[in-house]
C-alpha cells in the first residue's frame, strides 16, 4: 500500500509522513526547495512542484496518479492550499474525503476516522470508504528514519491561476507547538503595551507566549504563528496558562492536549474555568506578580 502526503508548509510534513509510514510506502509532495528536515521521514520520493497556489494543476497531477493506482490514500496538511487541493482532488478523482482527521484506523476495506465537529464541541467518529484526508496538526509525534529521501522536481499542467505577487508574513520565529510551557494571552490583556507585564513571568518559567485569535489575528499584539486554536496551532505543552482568555470552544480545540491547564480570568463564569485544572478568579495584572514572586522563592 502506498500513500502520498501533500503539504505546502514543509514544517507540517514530518508528523503526517510519520503517520502515513505506518500504513506503507509514502511519497511527499511540496513546493521547494526541499528542506533537509523533510528528507528524513522515510519517503520513497519527494516531489517538488513549483507553486502550491496552482491548486487546480496540483489536484490534476494527484488525481491522475491516483487513478493509475499509484496511491491508495492521500493525506493532506490542513492549510488553506491543502484544503483546496483536497476538495478539488476528491471531486476530480471521485474519491470520498474526510477533513481534519485527528485519528485514523483501517477497518477492512473502510477507514475509521475522528474529527472535531460542532466547532469543537464534539468529536465525530465516521466510517467510510474515503481515500483523501486532510490531517489536523499533531496527529502523531514525528519520527525520523536513518535514510535520506531522494528529491525530484515535477512539472505541472497549465493552471488557470496566475500568481501575481506574494508577501511573507512577519513571523515570531518561535514554534509554539514544541514548547513545554505556554503563557497564552487573550483579549483580556487590553493592549499590546501590557505584554511587558507578562514577559517577566513567562521568562521565569521558560514559557513561550502565545495567544487567542483576536490577539494574533485581529489586533496583531502577537504574530499569527502564535495563535492557538481550531484555526491556529494545536499545542500540547506540559503547562498551559491562559490569561484573560474566555475559553471559547474554538480556542479550547487548540490546547486540549495540554497536560495541565491553569487559567486566570476576571469573570467567574468564563467557560475557560470548565476546561482548566487550576483557576484563579481575578485580574491577571494582580495575580501574575504574585505568581512570579512565588516562583522566585
Amino acid at each position: 500500500m502506498k500513500s502520498f502526503v501533500f503539504s505546502d508548509d514543509q514544517s507540517l510534513v514530518p508528523a503526517i509522513a510519520t503517520f502515513a509510514r505506518a500504513l506503507g510506502d509514502v511519497d511527499i509532495y511540496s513546493s521547494g526547495p526541499a528542506s533537509p528536515a523533510i528528507k528524513k521521514y522515510g519517503a520513497l520520493k519527494i516531489y517538488i512542484v513549483n507553486d502550491t497556489n496552482l491548486t487546480d494543476s496540483i489536484a490534476d497531477l494527484l488525481a491522475s496518479r491516483m487513478s493509475k493506482g499509484e496511491y491508495q490514500f492521500g493525506f493532506i496538511a490542513s492549510t488553506v492550499n491543502g484544503r483546496d487541493v483536497a476538495g478539488l482532488l476528491a471531486s476530480k478523482s471521485n474519491a470520498g474525503s474526510i477533513a481534519e482527521i485527528s485519528s485514523f484506523e483501517l477497518a477492512g476495506s473502510s477507514t475509521r476516522t475522528k474529527r472535531f465537529f460542532f466547532g469543537g464541541k464534539s468529536i465525530l467518529e465516521e466510517e467510510s470508504s474515503s481515500r483523501i484526508f486532510t490531517v489536523s496538526p499533531g496527529i502523531v509525534e514525528p519520527r525520523e528514519v536513518g535514510t535520506e529521501s531522494p528529491v525530484e522536481q515535477v512539472s505541472l499542467s497549465p493552471s488557470r491561476i496566475s500568481v501575481l505577487s506574494s508577501e511573507e508574513k512577519k513571523s515570531g520565529g518561535v514554534d509554539i507547538e514544541k514548547a513545554q510551557a505556554i503563557v497564552s494571552i487573550g483579549r483580556g490583556l487590553g493592549n499590546k503595551d501590557k505584554l511587558s507585564a507578562i514577559e517577566p513571568f513567562a521568562s521565569a518559567i521558560n514559557a513561550v507566549i502565545a495567544g487567542s485569535r483576536p490577539v494574533c489575528l485581529d489586533y496583531h499584539w502577537l504574530s499569527e504563528d502564535r495563535q492557538v486554536g481550531l484555526s491556529g496551532r494545536k499545542v500540547r505543552p506540559k503547562v498551559y496558562i491562559a490569561l484573560g482568555i474566555s475559553g471559547q470552544i474554538q480556542h479550547i480545540a487548540g490546547m486540549r492536549g495540554s497536560k495541565i491547564v491553569i487559567a486566570v480570568n476576571k469573570d467567574k463564569t468564563a467557560p475557560i474555568f470548565e476546561e482548566c485544572d487550576y483557576g484563579i478568579v481575578g485580574d491577571m495584572f494582580d495575580v501574575l506578580p504574585r505568581l512570579l514572586d512565588g516562583m522566585k522563592k
Partner: peptide, 12 residues
C-alpha cells in the same frame, strides 16, 4: 463542521 472541503469539491 469545519471541513474546508466544500470550496474545492464545488469548484471541481
Amino acid at each position: 463542521s469545519y471541513t474546508g472541503l466544500l470550496p474545492g469539491l464545488l469548484a471541481g
